Simulated assay, not measured.
Amino acid sequence: MSETNNNNNSNSMMLEVNNIFNSFMNEMEEEFQLRQNIKNSTTVIDQTERKMNLIVQMAHTQNINNSKELYKQIVELATSLKPTFNELKALIKPFNYYKYRDHWKRHLTQIVFCLAFSYWLECKQLLKIEVIQNHLGFESTATKGSITVELEDYLLGLCDVTNEMSRYCVNCVIRQDFETPLLISTFVNDLYAGFRLLNLKNDILRKRFDSMKYDIKKLEEVVYDLSVRKLIPTQQQKQQ
Rank of each mutant, 00 (worst) to 15 (best):
S2D: 09
N5V: 06
N7A: 04
N7W: 10
N8Y: 04
N9R: 11
S10P: 00
S10T: 04
N11L: 07
N11W: 05
S12M: 05
L15A: 04
E16A: 11
N18F: 13
N18I: 14
N18G: 09
I20A: 04
N22A: 05
F24H: 12
E27S: 09
E29I: 06
E29L: 04
E29F: 03
E30R: 09
E30M: 07
E30H: 09
E30A: 12
E31V: 02
E31G: 01
F32C: 02
R35Y: 03
I38F: 00
N40S: 05
N40W: 00
T43S: 01
I45D: 02
I45T: 01
Q47R: 02
E49N: 00
R50N: 07
K51D: 06
N53P: 03
L54I: 00
L54R: 10
Q57D: 08
Q57E: 08
M58K: 13
T61C: 09
N66V: 09
S67G: 06
S67I: 03
L70V: 05
Y71I: 14
K72S: 13
Q73A: 12
S80L: 05
K82T: 03
P83F: 04
T84I: 12
E87I: 12
K89S: 06
L91S: 08
I92F: 02
K93R: 10
N96M: 10
Y100G: 06
R101D: 03
D102T: 14
W104R: 13
W104H: 10
K105Y: 14
H107N: 02
V112E: 00
F113V: 02
F113N: 04
A116N: 13
Y119G: 08
K124V: 09
K128Y: 12
G137F: 06
G137Q: 06
A142L: 06
T143N: 07
K144E: 07
G145H: 06
E150A: 05
L151S: 11
Y154I: 02
Y154T: 00
L156D: 09
C159N: 03
D160E: 11
V161Q: 01
N163E: 15
N163I: 02
E164W: 03
E164Q: 07
S166E: 10
R167M: 10
V170G: 04
N171D: 10
C172H: 12
V173I: 11
I174K: 10
Q176C: 11
E179M: 13
T180E: 15
T180H: 11
L182G: 06
L182T: 02
L183A: 15
T186R: 00
T186V: 03
F187E: 05
V188H: 00
V188G: 07
V188A: 06
D190W: 00
G194L: 07
G194I: 11
G194C: 09
R196E: 15
R196Y: 04
L198T: 13
N202H: 01
L205I: 09
I216D: 00
K218S: 09
S227G: 08
S227V: 04
V228Q: 12
L231K: 14
P233D: 04
Q237M: 13
K238I: 15
Q240K: 12
